[in-house]
Write a protein that binds this DNA or RNA. Sequence first.
DNA 1: CACTCTTAGTGTCTAGGATACACTAAGTCC
DNA 2: GGACTTAGTGTATCCTAGACACTAAGAGTG
Lengths: 229, 229
Amino acid sequence: MSYTYEYPRPALTVDCVVFGLDEDDLKVLLVQRAGEPFRGSWALPGGFVDMQETTDDAALRELEEETGVRDVYLEQLYTFSAVNRDPRERVVSVAYYALVKLSEHAVRAATDASDAAWFSVEEATNLAFDHDEIVATARERLRGKVRYQPIGFELLPEKFTLTQLQRLYEIVLDTELDKRNFRKKILAMDLLRSLDEVEKGVAHRAARLYRFDQRRYRQLVKRGFNFEL
Amino acid sequence: MSYTYEYPRPALTVDCVVFGLDEDDLKVLLVQRAGEPFRGSWALPGGFVDMQETTDDAALRELEEETGVRDVYLEQLYTFSAVNRDPRERVVSVAYYALVKLSEHAVRAATDASDAAWFSVEEATNLAFDHDEIVATARERLRGKVRYQPIGFELLPEKFTLTQLQRLYEIVLDTELDKRNFRKKILAMDLLRSLDEVEKGVAHRAARLYRFDQRRYRQLVKRGFNFEL
DNA sequence: CACTCTTAGTGTCTAGGATACACTAAGTCC
DNA sequence: GGACTTAGTGTATCCTAGACACTAAGAGTG
């Protein structure tokens, strides 16, 4: 079977920068390339866009196929179209970034990628194609966005401590934050539901657990509230 | 001549939302469609991406071809990929938005578009394809971005008065601003060069002219300055 | 040329949010 | 029981945002 057009067309792909959060590191999910070009190199999960799916659909599908990851926060990042970004032929790629709860996403290597693994963003370098650039763009976007929208919670488990939350912002924004001021501010927003539960298995005083109250957030937004940290 | 591929491919286009600023309105540049579908409807300037150009290149080229507009501030907006956004066939479009100095861009209708004209954004409705949605997305983006980056100046002439600048922000952000506070804040940033010149041809006290100091801005950014209004 | 009209241009006070800062409480481990 | 580690909490200061009203300058008109 083949398809013929009057004018040449670039191939269209999607690539996903999947972020996860460790105790003290921002991580990216990469797959090792099984075929040429860049065989053996690490690359972003991604692939071709089918005719009957949007690029959003394609990103979710490829993510699941290649890494087993699903149910993630996904957002379009940028479209990369440098003429020689793929050595084989002209390929334009719509890049996405995703935020996942690392603890709940043990990665299983799956079909078309020979292997999938988490890398610290700092170490995720020398990737295939222009994927270094895509990762850099995604980091910038995440840094910019996390301060104005409560998307950071997507990186934490459902129940988390305030220290974990603070750590998240410190890692993503690459700054130190004052404990008391941070707590004052975030609690004042009235977006967190304090649970009657504390963390387990720590060798010191256990911290109280909180949950992000999505419903409350939407209410507040309607009334003109702007998340800002 | 024809081109054959093993798998089907969407066509790839670019569309441009070109913003200009009037005394009291934000305007969009539209072209009237000469052919089907949507013949006679107004649409965003745009067209197919060639194989040897990036989408940025394509956006600039189409803009000049269809409207004669060049030398603009251009930024990628979002990629639209709904499966049926074009009734003829699958077309994925990388949308851009541009900011131009309206006064310096008398529009000349050009080759492939039968006509080009400026519309108030409010009136730019019932456009061809999903262009209403693209314009809406561009407006949101502009509103969001104008507060954190000094891109508003792209909409004004080289030399402008503080009142014009304030008006710009009022229009884009759709709020009223206090004259004294606005001036205090913008001048405190030390980004404007006050010129020894005043506006001409007004029937009242003439206002001093200013110029945005791009060099100074870059210096300040290096030192960690963040534009915010 | 006097008067009117219109917009330019300017300073202060107040309130609320941002930041700096250090000790006690609770739980585990040995 | 003592050492160790992190949780959790309040106040004082500074600075920025916002509210607010009058004089200055120039053009136009009779």
